[in-house]
Amino acid sequence: MATAHSRVAARFMISPAVLLLLGWMIVPLSMTIYFSFLSYNLLMPGMEEFIGFTNYRFFLTDPAFFAALANTLLLVGGVLVITIVGGTALALLLDQPFWGQGIVRILVIAPFFVMPTVSALVWKNMFMNPVNGLFAHLAKAIGLEPFDFLAHAPLASIILIVAWQWLPFATLILLTALQSLDQEQLEASEMDGANFGNRFIYIVLPHMARAITVVVLIQTIFLLSVFAEILVTTNGGPGYASTNITYLVYAQSLLQFDVGGGSAGGIVAVILANIVAVFLMRMIGKNLEA
């Protein structure tokens, strides 16, 4: 495809990006691994010593870890279910012809562009606040007791907020996939006697399977690292009721200054993310060949 001359130039042009990313990956990650084997607290400088797997033992047997792991899975799972189901329904809706398609599309994707701290604060104060929030007003108007969402259902509330942010992403991608479906295929299946339900199950869903997988994998990568929404709304509380792994590691390292323990937690988070990443990479890798 090319001459020797251009190949040398190519290698030269690619190296800055590769070297930078290599540095970004290797230097801090190996430092984290190193710290994770140390007893190291920022409040007690100069006392670092090698303690083997003790940090991992403490981190993995801490009840907070199990709470955080469960919360992480619930958060990721909950948001995925809401966004995939809602996104598919919305994509099917927006794919129909109607007046003002462009405007509705814009309205639907808007939440994706709202920075996480803003959406968390707006939801927390203006909607979920038990005194002045819109939900409280609504409850009072129909004669119910206002519900303190973030105190009594902190994780569910955070799931709702995060799902609101990611629903547009799922919708947009699924809609794009839907629009790339060959109309002749649908017409052929109609001629073959398939009704709307059959067409959805046998033609539309298989066509969207790939896009759905992509949505699941990419959202999972981001959802494992949800942070700002928790920091701003509940600080992980009450107790550990809304702490996920990311927030737990943050709290351990930067609030309790336990570098060793935090690093061990960080490595655990890396391993969890890798499990998802392997699947995602396979998907995208296949696409590269196509």
């Binding site: 990650l29 430092m31 984290t32 710290f35 494992l224 390292s253 993310a273 890798n274 998802v276 890798g285």
Partner: peptide, 23 residues
Amino acid sequence: VLMWMLSTKMLPPVGVLIPIYLL
């Protein structure tokens, strides 16, 4: 190379929070 670059994006930020903070 492309896939490897992508894999760096999958690194959860908390995994490198402490070193970056200290550096």
